[in-house]
Design a protein around this nucleic acid. Structure first.
Length: 184
DNA sequence: AAGTAGATGTTCT
DNA sequence: GAACATCTACTTA
């Protein structure tokens, strides 16, 4: 399946089924930086923890652009976090990229992350954006425009996906909308 | 190994 | 003012 077909199914479906896919950013020199998506969280308008729960605002407007767009927001006054927008235009749903395992451009990520040990490079949503160089200027972008690239899982990988409660929220904590890749 | 505090800006009450 | 889809450094055991 194409990644767009997965995103169009909605954020919960996409958050689960994009685990194992590879997310890359194209650098200005043309090289790729990124890796395997290992952790995601889904958000929908019905969900009280979602930025879109109270409708469209200036900050969250990219979440209403429809499947395939990128929503980047500024978190806790310090960090950028990126989502892939899912569902149809106007539906206001997306999935937060919480973690990847780098497999391209690792040296660039180490520099951007101030030479953290590799295990800590991209194991959190703020860390992912810092390592990939994603900021507010990427808000509203489309992968089709070439800066973001999504590739299917490496066929040799055995994918075991686990659903858990989401991290860092205080409302609608009962939803099992965090998905992690359990490697074996 | 586990817990706490501090940084810091935007959004909402 | 308070809360916040976070991260790091520093404490205590």
């Amino acid at each position: 399946m194409e990644y767009m077909d997965i995103l169009r199914q909605g954020s919960v479906y996409a958050a689960e089924h994009l685990i194992g896919w590879r997310l890359y950013v194209r650098e200005v020199d043309g090289s790729l930086t990124g890796g395997v998506i290992t952790e995601t969280e889904a958000y929908t308008p019905e969900d009280k923890a979602s930025h879109t729960h109270k409708g469209e605002t200036l900050r969250n407007s990219a979440m209403f652009l429809g499947a395939g767009h990128v929503y980047v927001y500024f978190s806790y006054g310090m960090h950028w976090c990126m989502n892939l927008v899912a569902g149809s235009a106007g539906s206001g749903q997306g999935l937060l990229i919480r973690g990847i395992v780098p497999d391209k451009g690792i040296e660039k990520m180490r520099q951007r992350r101030n030479y953290q040990v590799d295990k800590l490079l991209t194991n959190g949503p703020g860390k992912v954006c810092q390592a990939l160089g994603v900021t507010g200027t990427d808000n509203g972008a489309l992968p089709a425009e070439g800066r973001f690239i999504l590739l299917p899982p490496d066929g040799s990988l055995r994918l075991a996906v686990t659903a858990t409660p989401r991290v860092g929220i205080s409302r609608d904590t009962h939803r099992l909308w965090r998905f992690v890749l359990a490697t074996e």
